[in-house]
């Protein structure tokens, strides 16, 4: 990795110079080297660790904002936030870290631009109770085959009807393929909440498709 060589080499160079220079020159040199090192290293880390996940970041942002332009603004804002804190963190799972930032950025955006889209969690449960209703079909309805017939547009429309918290959980699991633990970290809720949101989201999706697919 050329970048690792560069930063390593630059620090060697700095110490070499320091040994043979008057103290004041040494101080200036250290200052220059440190500043350029910091930005080179951060930019390289950003390119290495964050940019590979643009597509993941976009998928999540798109699921929360509901359209391309706003999703791209959220991703850009999230990337800037990531860049600014990159110096201060050690990252073990860059993808989950980036998605956490996208999640937080998107919720800030939602609170400002779509305040009614975010429902409090307690209200969510109430909505669920009201909409789940007693219309659960008996055992062997041919729903599986009906769901299998749903086309792209019907799936997209059905997902759009979910509340953001459910939509996000479903997209992270069924589109992005993350595991429950990662989803719990990203969305900042206990794993039990991830499980129930996912079950509810799929249930609601199946119900909407039952209504819409002829």
């Amino acid at each position: 990795m050329p970048v690792t060589y560069l930063t390593h080499a630059a620090s060697l160079q700095r110490y070499d110079t320091g040994a043979s220079c008057p103290a004041i020159l040494d101080g200036i040199w250290t200052l220059i080297a440190d500043r350029s090192l910091l930005s080179v290293d951060t930019k390289a880390r950003f390119a290495d660790q964050i940019l590979p996940y643009l597509q993941d970041a976009y998928n999540l942002a798109r699921s929360l904002t509901g359209n391309r332009a706003d999703a791209e603004d959220v991703v850009q804002e999230a990337c800037l936030r990531a860049y600014r804190s990159l110096d201060r963190v050690t990252i073990s799972n860059a993808r989950a870290w980036m998605l956490t930032i996208v999640h937080n950025t998107a919720y800030t955006w939602l609170a400002k631009n779509r305040p009614r889209a975010i429902v409090a969690v307690s209200d969510l449960e109430a909505i669920e109770r009201a909409t789940a209703g007693p219309d659960r079909p008996a055992g062997e309805t041919p729903e599986a085959s009906l769901i299998a017939k749903a086309d792209a547009a019907q799936l997209d429309a059905a997902i759009a009807e979910l509340p953001p918290q459910f939509r996000e959980t479903l997209v992270l699991r069924d589109v992005q393929g993350l595991d429950y633990k990662e989803i719990a970290t990203i969305t900042g809720v206990p794993i039990g909440t991830v499980m129930s949101r996912l079950a509810r989201a799929r249930e609601r999706l199946a119900a909407v498709l039952r209504r819409d697919v002829p």
Binding site: L54, Q55, Y58, N59, R62, R68, A71, E72, V75, E143, A144, S145, I147, A148, A150, D151, A152, L155, D156, I159, L170, D174, V175, R202, L205, A206, L209
Partner: peptide, 19 residues
């Protein structure tokens, strides 16, 4: 069967949109 059908539909037919 319902959940399986749903997961398959999402995996195979949901359009993937690139930024």
């Amino acid at each position: 069967d319902r959940i399986e059908a749903l997961r398959t539909a999402l995996r195979e037919r949901l359009p993937r949109e690139a930024p």
